[in-house]
Design a protein around this nucleic acid. Structure first.
Lengths: 343, 343
DNA sequence: TTGCTTTACGAAAACGTGGTAGTGTTGAAA
DNA sequence: TTTCAACACTACCACGTTTTCGTAAAGCAA
């Protein structure tokens, strides 16, 4: 049990000053070759590595970035983390992850915990509750402190910062349009409650696609799900009435539930009902039938978000203080992955 | 853009010493009430929060724990992280996550990066490559430095430390036994390559169940998959020969692939072939038919691992140095979740 | 000897905190 | 008047690093 060795210990052991050790290890020409090599050999032997915390304190940079997301057991979010982790690693950054659990309080707590020097910047996706309350003071606060923030997916216009999103509206439009192109007329929308930003946008795209094709927009065909349990009942009711011949679901969980419900009732997918889901996850790939989806590459979003954040962090180093805040909103392209649930 | 305020700044502003400010904020009786309240009011107004990095340096604790896992876009691992995050949060710890991507080098690099003071302890699951090489020097090294390590799921006997596992062998035994109980005689095993510790154990359990029931152990019925692509071919070949009437798959990805392949060939699950998978993930719940699985609660494993680690960390505080190393291996119970893929 | 430049190193400050030990002033007891 | 305690506060150190500045010794020219 030998604790990590420090500069001080090396200095004492070799009977030189701490500065001499530090300089020797950084190969400063100030130090005579003999001493330099002696120190380096000693340090190597004891496997000296500078203490990160001390470095952070000195440099006022932690080389780590904080991620705040609503859930982690969630295909999309985990792909985003993966994407972030990749570039973070590449640039020598660590990622510390906090889960808000879709709770406003936890989100605030987590941000406060990390904001006190633990990290150099945030990448985050808003919790449902935060979006519902519309209270973003915790975010403006860290931004005011000069800490860069990049938001992704679940964002808000109320905060000025870099953002990485997909064009939810256009993607939804494309999906619904493809259903219409296949001759579907009565297209249902299964979505979440309105305050989730992306849910709202996808609804807008759905509506626009219908209207552009001269199909009346029917409120009764919009099913807003708060928890997945109730979904099944609502779905089966509508199916009984044969009220629709296609469904656009805002996530794959809803989609697979619809398919299973339909199957139970003896309806065939895609013959009787075509299904398209948002978010290309693992369920869509492996369900039977496989599900046509709008792919939104979490990995790419993560990559991009991390790059934007790190650029901001490292830009601050130089021209510290008030660089004209030209925030960027990056839009990641989506595309439709056709599978068995549509024809 | 007002940077975070420090003790020093407060001291200067109020024209008192830094110690006075520090003590006032910690409500020390040494400081007169008037000064104390004045300082507290000022600190509150400027939203003073002590700097974590400085605290870490001083206290030699970071209040954060490092997680090293092979993958993050993976249902089981993400549930474990979730479990860790829960208790970490509860105890005021942050989690830093690194993905080894099943690469030995990355695992080593990540550990070195974090071991230099960034965290108070590790929770990890070995990468495939590390298990293959059997090289654990990077782990013994951090342990020798006095840093607690808890391993979970993919562990090794070569390292002495706390561990959280499931009884892979017994769980596999139970699963295979249940297939036998349902009258299946020719049971195939679809598994990974041997060096993955859990793969090996599950194979052992499978073999034992067969032998205990007087069923001959047939090597031809064991399919070792290296990448999922080739799996489909091998499977369909065996299916053609009607070589088996049940399959025990070591993960749900293999299971769902088998089911899909069988379906394509016109075979019915579970009538013609019964399927049981290890790991109760999202695919099993939503595939058609739903898949009978051995549930291994990642969340519980994460909870337990985090608790063990934090206990170790906080125990060290007191009796620093050589507490009789009585390492614990915690076994999380599993159970069979019966679904549609078995009768 | 004096003055100047190198060479080779050390002292000290800084990052932000918290605890221990000290210091100066006041008022009261001896 | 002296002594001693209580009060209210400050000085200083440590955590581990980097970096700036300083300086002693040595070498060399004048």
């Amino acid at each position: 049990m030998k604790r990590k060795i420090t500069l001080k210990q090396i200095a004492k052991e070799l009977d030189v000053s701490i500065s001499t050790v530090s300089k020797s290890l950084r190969n400063s020409l100030e130090i005579g070759e003999e001493t330099r090599l002696k120190v380096q050999a000693f340090a190597k032997f004891y496997n000296y590595k500078p203490n990160n915390i001390a470095l952070s304190l000195k440099n006022r940079k932690t080389k780590s970035i904080g991620i705040i997301i609503p859930e982690i057991v969630h295909y999309f979010f985990s792909t985003v983390i993966n994407g972030i982790e990749q570039v973070a690693n590449e640039y020598g950054y660590s990622v510390v992850i906090c889960v808000s659990d879709d709770s406003f309080d936890k989100e605030v707590l987590n941000m406060e915990m990390l904001a006190n020097g633990s990290i150099d910047g945030f990448i985050m996706s808003l919790s449902k509750e935060t979006q519902f309350k519309g209270d973003f003071h915790h975010i403006t606060e860290v931004i005011n402190q000069g800490m860069p923030v990049v938001m992704f997916d679940r964002v808000t216009n109320d905060i000025l910062c870099d953002k990485v999103i997909i064009d939810d509206k256009a993607a939804a439009y494309e999906a619904v349009q493809s259903l219409i192109d296949n001759g579907r007329k009565k297209i249902a929308l299964v979505t979440t409650v309105d305050y989730v930003s992306v849910g709202k946008l996808r609804t807008d795209g759905y509506e626009k696609a219908l209207l552009d094709n001269g199909i009346p927009f029917n409120e009764d065909l919009i099913i807003k799900i708060e928890d997945v349990e109730t979904c099944e009942i609502t779905i089966s009711q509508l199916l009984h009435e044969r009220a629709f011949d296609a469904v656009f679901a805002v996530n794959e969980l809803f989609a697979v539930t619809i398919i299973k419900t339909a199957n139970k009732m003896g309806l065939k997918v895609p013959d009787d009902i075509a299904v398209i889901a948002f978010t290309d996850g693992i369920i869509s790939k492996y369900s039977t039938p496989t599900i046509t989806t709008v792919s939104q590459s979490g990995e790419k979003m993560g990559n991009k978000a991390a790059k934007m954040l790190i650029e901001r962090i490292e830009a601050e180093e130089d021209d510290d203080e008030e660089h004209t805040e030209n925030y960027i909103t990056e839009v990641i392209e989506t595309h439709l992955i056709k599978r068995e649930s549509t024809d």
